[in-house]
Design a protein around this nucleic acid. Structure first.
Lengths: 172, 172
DNA sequence: ATCAATTACATAGGTCCCTATATATTAAAT
DNA sequence: ATTTAATATATAGGGACCTATGTAATTGAT
């Protein structure tokens, strides 16, 4: 199942003569930097793909969560997107600036607003979905479905470890 | 904290009355968001672990590349750390502000400076190394060596795909 | 009913990145 | 030699996150 075929070769490569010594940087043979690098690459990819539609990567969870025209509080958006509230606040501020979302005061709770996508945003949605789908295909090009599943599984476990660490340290 | 109770099942499930609908968010069953989430988690972990020593995550590559007291140009630091030059410039500015690096004009090239760690930074180095080691252990807790290797391998392939995409689009 | 938590947001201040550009300086080409 | 192209940094402008705090509205417990 988990075809272990190595391929650790070509990790860094290229030892030009007068060049900087090519340290066999342990940091690139450990998961953390690879994940960080992948994340940055994904961000750039998403940015390039979404910019033409006037959207950006951080807005995707909002587009997704409100895709049916529904409304939700900022808090719920943040919780479901798994980012902190101030981060979501900033994203929503930008989306509001760009006319992508609308806020309506929650009649049930004077502190809260219900956020929903504008018509403009809802119109973009299908194109975004399409762009994402294409990006995803490009990302996992050459991967078998099993490999993708394995990758996701390992990443989920990693994320669980990360969450646990946070909780452990907060609790002490 | 959003119990991600995965399991591809429960797809359309659970539409409790007042609750937020538990969309079976495709985005969390695909590698991209998992990677993004892991990267953010790693960043937070690193930050927590490094702050006590007056260092931060983005500085690690610099610490590593100059660990032996050597000197290097900003360009080479950026290239080896695989970030863009302006990003490295900003990191170095912060490190200079914090007294961690020193710049000496390159006698061979009037445009360039040679960057090296200060004594202060070199002193911190072992503690950082230690902290990283501990963090790494926590991260992959419960993983077999083979699983870690598989993860790294898959991530390297992913990164290769991401790089290829960039190149392909730049070339057109 | 009142006063003290507990929320929901807003704001301030930072880090880590990226793209696009401007500014020197060195290397190449004519 | 001059002009031109390529390099090494610097700067401007943003986006995406985070932590720490402040503020207003709501809940809870007297």
């Amino acid at each position: 199942m988990v075809d272990l075929k190595k391929g650790a070769a070509a990790a860094v490569a290229a030892d030009e003569p007068g060049a900087v010594p090519d340290h066999e940087w342990e940091l690139f043979n450990t998961p953390a930097p690879l994940i960080n690098m992948a994340s940055r690459g994904l961000m750039r990819l998403a940015e390039r793909r979404l910019k033409p539609f006037g959207a950006s990567a951080g807005q995707l969870p909002v587009f997704y969560l409100l895709r049916d025209g529904g409304a939700m509080s900022q808090r719920d958006l943040a919780r479901l997107a798994r980012i902190e509230q101030p981060s979501m606040a900033q994203t929503l501020a930008r989306m509001e600036r760009d006319g992508l979302i609308r806020r309506v005061p929650d009649p049930k709770d004077g502190r809260s607003s219900l956020i929903s996508l504008t018509k403009k945003a809802l119109t973009k949605a299908p194109a975004l979905r399409e762009a994402l789908h294409a990006g995803r295909a490009e990302l996992v090009e050459g991967f078998s479905e099993a490999e993708i599943a394995t990758l996701c599984d390992l990443l989920r476990r990693l994320n669980r470890n990360l969450d646990r660490g946070v909780i452990r340290e907060i609790a002490e």
